[in-house]
């Protein structure tokens, strides 16, 4: 052992290589390798007659993806849902994260952390099916709203075209609620971390210089929380873009990207199209991140 340590001492190159080799192998093969295989697959196409994959590079599958209005619909529908979920999660998470980072006593903070993380220790499938029951026509949510005398409000919401439906469990509104619930912790945690790093003295300085609380929020807290907001929104955005279980258990029958991937590589057997569909979220996230960077979301890092 001593001899090895002595040999490595001063040979920083070897040392670094030894340290990085296992994780790089893992990262290279398992992550990047499979991602490349996926990307390759999307540049193949399927033979219409034999239904077999022709291993020749072509843009035919991507052409298929964009010329069919149904496919474009699916992409836009998923994108709209992801955007709505991300914005809502940010709005809901901000006050919670702000409280946790700035006002909660250490005990209260621990309690909140457990409260935020606890749902993540439960099976994802159990939660989705539980939500279907909660949102059902005779479910506890409608019962609860009835107790509050708010049933007409629910009926009005369900009567809204596109987002409405016969019940919450079979409408996009219900699906949206489940998505927000599911991904909220992924927004709260990075946001809390970002807000915790904003020193109290900056807020005092802002007030000291004459800024009212609203101005301090706009000029100091929000810009400094942007990296956390960006990190959280990448989670909520990409998780919504890729999910196929929630849209298939809760909500209206319209297809989402994740469901398409699942179906194309399974029953339909069109692996190239499935691959092309799964490249869409990657591109959307890349666009989102470059936009966020251009808007200065990472300047405060």
């Amino acid at each position: 052992m001593r001899a090895i340590a002595k040999f490595l001492y001063g040979r920083r190159g070897y040392y670094l290589a030894l340290l990085l080799l296992p994780p790089l192998l893992w990262l290279g093969t398992v992550y990047l390798g499979s991602l490349l295989a996926l990307l390759m697959q999307s540049f193949y196409a399927i033979d219409e007659f034999t239904a077999r994959i022709v291993p020749k590079l072509t843009l035919e599958t991507y052409r298929q993806l964009v010329i069919h209005p149904a496919n474009v619909d699916i992409i836009l529908r998923t994108l709209a849902m992801a955007a709505a979920v991300t914005v809502t999660a940010a709005i809901v998470a901000f006050p919670i994260a702000n409280y946790m980072a700035r006002y909660a006593s250490p005990r209260m903070k621990a309690f909140f952390y457990v409260g935020v993380m606890l749902p993540m220790w439960t099976s994802y499938l159990v939660k989705v099916y539980a939500w279907r029951l909660v949102l059902a026509k005779q479910g506890i949510l409608s019962w609860f709203l009835d107790q509050l005398g708010l049933l007409p409000a629910l009926d009005a919401a369900l009567a809204t075209p596109v987002i409405g439906g016969p019940s919450l469990a079979s409408s996009y509104l219900g699906m949206f609620i489940v998505f927000v619930y599911m991904w909220l912790p992924f927004m709260i945690l990075p946001l809390t971390a970002a807000l915790e790093r904003v020193p109290q003295s900056l807020l005092q300085a802002s007030a000291d210089l004459g800024a009212r609380p609203g101005q301090t929020f706009r000029n100091v807290i929000l810009p400094l929380a942007l990296p956390g907001l960006a990190a959280g929104s990448v989670f909520t955005f990409s998780l919504t873009l890729g999910d196929y279980i929630i849209p298939s258990v809760v909500g209206a029958p319209g297809y989402f990207i994740g469901m398409m991937v699942y179906q194309q590589q399974g029953t339909a057997g069109n692996l190239p199209l499935a691959a092309a569909f799964s490249v869409v979220p990657i591109i959307l996230i890349a666009i989102y991140l470059s936009l966020a960077k251009r808007l200065g979301a990472f300047n405060a890092l």
Partner: peptide, 20 residues
Amino acid sequence: IPPFDRSVNTVFQDYALFPH
């Protein structure tokens, strides 16, 4: 009266400059 309505300004020990 809250700090933002007082005609008093402070130079903080850690300077508290806005990093962004």
